[in-house]
Simulated scan of single mutants.
Amino acid sequence: MTRTRAIGFALTALAALAALALPAVLVAGQSDADTAKAIGTPASADEPQRVTIPSIGVDSPLLRLARDQAPPPEKGMTAGWYTASAMPGRPGAAVITGHEAADGRAVFRDLRKLAAGDTIEVKRGDGKLLRFTVTATETVGRAAAFPTGKVFGTTGERALRLVTCTGDRDARGHPVRNLIVYATLRA
């Protein structure tokens, strides 16, 4: 093989490898402002890709969100995983959020129907399916202090928290309560 052909072959191989790796690098290197653009595209194999709640008909890809973000209103039928929370299936609390809407057009519109014993499934980027069991639900007023420690705090459990706004609407049309669903990974 001539030197020119060898260099050409090496450049072609390098370009092919870059094309395969680029989507993961782009998602992983996004700023917090850009994370909402990555739908169902986990940055690593063990990051969550989808959430499914069979008992209430939820089947949603997951946005990658910074802790103070929510899925944008135009993505009302899409849930989001807080990347600053635990990876689902690992020790700690993984937190997924989604909208509830008065008109019923939102991913977590029926979240209030969940009860202890119901199943929540999280599919990872590598295809592994994690099954969580609901242990409790809690509704808190938005004017009251959000139970940040209870939702995001350190725990040795492999826990999942689902969070949405719910309840009556204020003068601006925003829900006045938060609904939190607590779940743990099945053994």
Rank of each mutant, 00 (worst) to 15 (best):
M87S: 13
F108A: 06
T154D: 12
T97M: 11
K75H: 12
F146M: 05
G125R: 12
A94E: 05
G76K: 10
A115S: 15
F146R: 08
G117I: 06
G153F: 06
S85I: 06
L62I: 04
R112S: 13
R124Y: 10
R109T: 09
R112Y: 11
E121G: 09
A86T: 02
T139V: 15
L129K: 15
L62F: 03
P73H: 07
A101F: 03
I96C: 04
R64F: 05
G98E: 02
R112K: 15
T83W: 04
V95T: 06
V58W: 00
L63R: 15
A136P: 07
G76A: 14
A116T: 14
I120K: 06
E157D: 15
F108S: 07
Q69A: 12
M77Q: 15
P91F: 04
D118G: 10
S60A: 03
A93G: 14
T83H: 11
D68H: 10
M77H: 08
R109F: 04
P61C: 03
G156Y: 05
L65I: 01
T155W: 01
A79Y: 00
D68N: 15
A86M: 06
V140E: 00
D110Q: 11
V95Y: 02
T133K: 13
K75M: 13
R112F: 12
D118V: 08
A102E: 12
F152Q: 10
A84T: 14
A115L: 09
G156L: 10
R109S: 14
W81Q: 00
A136Y: 09
A93Q: 10
A143I: 14
V151F: 03
T139S: 10
T83N: 06
V151A: 04
P147D: 02
D59Q: 11
D68S: 14
A84S: 14
G127C: 08
V140T: 13
M77S: 13
T97H: 08
A66L: 03
L130Q: 10
F108M: 09
A86S: 13
F146I: 04
I120T: 11
E100A: 14
A79V: 00
G104C: 11
Q69K: 04
F108V: 10
D126K: 09
W81A: 00
K113I: 01
E138M: 12
A94P: 07
E138A: 12
S60Q: 02
V58M: 01
F132R: 08
A93W: 03
A94T: 07
V151C: 05
I96H: 01
M87R: 15
P88K: 01
K128I: 12
